[in-house]
């Protein structure tokens, strides 16, 4: 018995040593990797990363994703040993992804002191919004004579072959739900939305899935009007092309958010997430992206601030409902609207 007891202790001790070994042997974290959209990286996050490195000595590497869906599938394919520590995604996809408890960690609020100041809607158990944006209407006044004042304007014949509208997948169904709301429907009754989108067809040049190409098409004059977030307006002014935006009610609000991946570098990764939430970085990110900051004291570019929707016009949708329906909506959209 004694032998056995000792033996078991010895075994436990050895196991403990083995478990502790990686932690003991682990060198200080030199770098972390973030997966995000190329435009977000070049827009502001590259410089945020550089400042983070100056402040902490930890380098930030980037892996880009074409869509957040693609980013999620890539992360799942490396579930056993993810090489990505922080993931930038939309709040909708984040809600779907968080069920994968092996891959994503709940946010350690104790290690995120800056998060306390962030607006409550941007905080969830597994993700935290870095900026917010609304879906509105961006247009070129040189190509559209009469200003646009409401969503309904888009259905006017004067916009025949002028519009770029996100596909179902882009902005996770917001276009459909908004169209439904304008026509007496809701997130739980999207039929009027489909009918409205069908009626919109003659006006649509492209149902776009890539922000970059859509914004370029607007800048080139291939489109006159784009249903898009304020970042599209910034893209126009960057290109020296006149642009205007309106955020008519209902104005669907979204966050692009950070998630913490379950890797050995999670402490450093959390530190980076916190860094993004400081007021200084919030100013920087919001202005770099042309989006709204989630830090109440931070501010974005004046021309973006001018087109943010009035608080009473803002709507946000239940991501669980969207996630449960997006596949079916997408099928129906492709069957009934785009063909």
């Amino acid at each position: 018995m004694a032998d056995m007891f000792l033996g078991r202790r010895g075994l436990l001790g050895a196991t403990g040593a083995m478990l502790a070994a990686p932690a003991l042997a682990q060198a200080p974290v030199r770098d972390i990797t973030i997966q995000l959209w190329g435009t977000t990286w070049t827009g502001s996050l590259r410089q945020v990363g550089q400042r983070f490195e100056q402040a902490t000595g930890i380098k930030v590497n980037a892996v880009t994703q074409a869509t957040s869906g693609e980013g999620l599938v890539r992360l799942q394919s490396m579930r056993a040993a993810p090489t990505i520590d922080v993931w930038f995604t939309t709040s909708s996809v984040a809600e779907r992804a968080k069920t994968d408890s092996q891959l994503f960690l709940p946010l350690p609020m104790a290690s995120l002191p800056s998060a306390a100041a962030i607006e409550p809607g941007a905080r969830a158990s597994h993700w935290i919004g870095v900026y917010f944006y609304q879906l509105g209407i961006v247009w070129r006044p040189d190509l559209v004579r009469e200003p646009i004042t409401s969503w309904q304007d888009l259905w006017q014949p004067r916009f025949a072959q002028k519009l770029g509208v996100p596909t179902m997948n882009s902005y996770q169904g917001r276009v459909l739900i908004t169209a439904a709301m304008l026509n007496g429907g809701s997130i739980s009754n999207v039929d009027p939305g489909f009918e409205a989108l069908k009626r919109l067809k003659p006006n649509v040049v492209t149902w776009y899935s890539s922000d970059t190409t859509a914004r370029q098409a607007l800048a080139q004059g291939e489109l006159s009007v784009l249903v898009a977030p304020p970042a599209a307006l910034k893209r126009l002014s960057d290109a020296g092309v006149p642009g205007r935006m309106i955020s008519p009610p209902p104005s669907p609000m979204m966050y692009d958010a950070l998630m913490l991946v379950n890797t050995p570098k999670k402490e450093a990764a959390a530190k980076f997430i916190d860094f993004c939430l400081t007021k200084e970085m919030q100013d920087f990110i919001a202005q770099g992206q042309g989006m709204g900051p989630v830090h109440p004291q931070a501010s974005t570019l004046p021309e973006i601030a001018a087109v943010l929707p009035r608080p009473q016009d803002r709507v946000s949708f239940d991501d669980d409902v969207i996630n449960a329906n997006i596949a079916a909506w997408n099928e129906r959209f492709n069957r009934e609207v785009t063909n």
Binding site: T67, G69, E70, L72, V73, R96, T167, M168, N169, V204, V205, T206, W207, Y208, S209, S210, T213, I326, A327, N330, N334, T338, N339
Partner: peptide, 24 residues
């Protein structure tokens, strides 16, 4: 995907949607 304006959907795009939109 890039030149179809959302109207040209071939099998590869359909499969892509099954993975990256429906996650099925």
């Amino acid at each position: 995907l890039m030149l179809g304006g959302g109207r040209v959907r071939l099998v590869a795009n359909y499969i892509y949607d099954q993975i990256f939109v429906a996650f099925d």
